[in-house]
Structures are given as C-alpha cells and as structure tokens.
C-alpha cells in the first residue's frame, strides 16, 4: 500500500484528489496539507509517507522548494509535482529539484494513480 500525502493550497482540488485517489487500489492517503510548511510539519511528526503529491503553485514554499527540502530531509519519499504549466522549463526545474514525476492538472485520475504506483 502506497502511503500518499497531498500538498495543495486549493481546497477544492485537495479534497477532490483525496476523495478520488483514496478510492484507488493500493493507495492510502495518510495526510494532506494546504501549504509546504504544514506538509513539512506533518512529515516531521513521523507520518510514514512514500509518495508526496505537491502542487507547483502555492503561497509560501512553492512546490519546487518543498520538493528540494523533502528530498534533502527524506530522500526516500518520491515526489510528484502537479501543475498547470506544461512548458519543459518547468518540468526540468521540477526534475532538478528531485521530483520523480511532473504531472499536468489535466490528467485523468486513473492515470495519476498509475503514476503514483509506478514512482
């Protein structure tokens, strides 16, 4: 079972993703956070997380910055950057920060679940 944490400032998107991904087989939503800071706090509290789904655009720590921190502190956690930006520069930036996958927000839930399982 893949333990997943969703970090998304937009509440509609965060709740929608939690609701739909929780229904996917082999994925367990262990935590969600509306900002990078809260996410780091929850990680520090000892929650076991395998994969983190992080929004690119957030107030405070951006998705890329949070990725860098997470990969520095807990390198075993796989990070998937979720964004609406499709340009390669964004993708390269995310990969450089340590993200395992770069996913556009137009992807179907099934495809997203498949990537979570594969990373």
């Amino acid at each position: 079972m893949i333990k997943l944490m969703i970090v998304e400032d937009n509440e509609v998107v965060r709740q929608g993703l939690s609701h739909l991904l929780a229904a996917e087989a082999g994925i367990a939503i262990v935590a969600d956070a509306q900002s990078g800071a809260i996410a780091l706090e929850k990680l520090a509290s000892g929650i076991g997380v395998d994969v983190m789904l992080i929004d690119w655009n957030m107030p405070g720590l951006s998705g890329v910055e949070l990725t860098s921190r997470v990969k520095l502190l807990m390198p075993h956690i796989k990070v998937i950057i979720l964004t609406m930006h499709s340009k390669d520069e964004y993708r390269m930036q995310a990969i450089s920060a340590g993200a395992s996958a770069y996913v556009l927000k137009d992807l179907a839930i099934e495809d997203l679940a498949k990537i979570i399982r594969e990373v």
């Binding site: 937009n10 509609v12 929608g16 609701h19 655009n57 930006h85 927000k105 137009d106 839930i109």
Partner: peptide, 21 residues
C-alpha cells in the same frame, strides 16, 4: 495568469476531478 491558474484553472481542475466520480 495567477488568477486564471490559481483561481479559475484550479476550480475547473476541481470540477474535472469531481466529474471523474
């Protein structure tokens, strides 16, 4: 862009996710 991305875009993404149900 922000408004579109964070506002309308996110809402539309939220709608899309929910429509997956």
């Amino acid at each position: 862009s922000e408004s579109l991305h964070n506002g309308i875009g996110q809402l539309l993404y939220g709608i899309k996710i929910n429509m997956s149900s």
